[in-house]
Design a protein around this nucleic acid. Structure first.
Length: 220
DNA sequence: GCCCAGGTGGGTA
DNA sequence: TACCCACATGGG
């Protein structure tokens, strides 16, 4: 299994190159992006983050102090803006009240402890928590997303019905716990899904990754 | 107009 | 536990 997982990684790396995620200017921006991108295209998230930046609202203090309606207005392009404004506020308030607004303090501790603390916040589920742990704090955790399940289901490694934790455990069990590897692996999976496996973009018909493309036109 | 996107939480059986 | 549904915008 390890050989298979490493093999897929190496093929993706060869096609797309190192991606150096997360596309953000700071760890706090990583976290805001991780919440805003829930079930949402990244292009929409970029608009929302830009709005927050221009309004100088990209900080825990501002996200707590601004009227909620103003946060909603700023992040509106990212969709689900009422839910997400609430989720940003919950995270920001937790950070301010429990850690004096310091991300370093929040993220300082054993992976499992920090992960548990994040998961207790409404609006942060397992994928968002792992994204924060990996991309804002460089903990060696694996981020599982919809693309991961689809790609590895197509290979027959998953059947698509596994719970989040089961898929994560598969990667953690068979790969070295290396935050650089996990960073690139998840980024490559998303890049592959976005550029190759979308409907109306059947690039895999011509590329070397057609066997791990879940484009609907491919059998299986 | 229709489909989908880097999920999560709440409700019901 | 296992489904089902609401949440919302913008690009193809």
């Amino acid at each position: 299994m390890r050989k298979t997982l490493v093999g897929i990684y190496e093929r993706l790396l060869k096609v797309y190159g190192q991606l150096h995620w997360w596309p953000a200017k700071s760890p706090f921006e990583v976290i805001v992006g991780a919440i805003l991108t829930q079930n949402t295209a990244w292009s929409n998230v970029e608009k929302a983050i830009r709005n927050l930046e221009v309004a100088q609202a990209l900080s825990p203090a501002m996200l707590v102090d601004l009227p909620l309606a103003e946060v909603e207005r700023l992040i509106q392009p990212s969709g689900y803006f009422r839910q997400k404004a609430q989720r940003l506020r919950i995270f920001a308030r937790h950070l301010m009240e429990r850690h004096g607004g310091s991300l370093v303090r929040l993220l300082d501790g054993p992976l499992d402890d920090v992960r548990k603390e994040l998961l207790e916040l409404k609006g942060i589920g397992p994928e968002t928590a792992d994204s924060i742990l990996l991309y804002a704090a460089h903990f060696p955790t694996f981020v599982v997303d919809a693309y991961t399940v689809r790609i590895f289901s197509r290979l027959g490694i998953l059947d698509g019905k596994e719970k989040y934790g089961e898929v994560r455990d598969l990667f953690l069990a068979h790969l070295p716990h290396d935050s650089f590897l996990f960073n690139e692996y998840h980024a490559l999976i998303v890049e592959h899904g976005k550029t190759c496996c979308r409907k109306k973009k059947p690039l895999c018909n011509a590329c070397s990754l057609s066997d791990i493309c879940f484009y609907y036109g491919h059998p299986g």
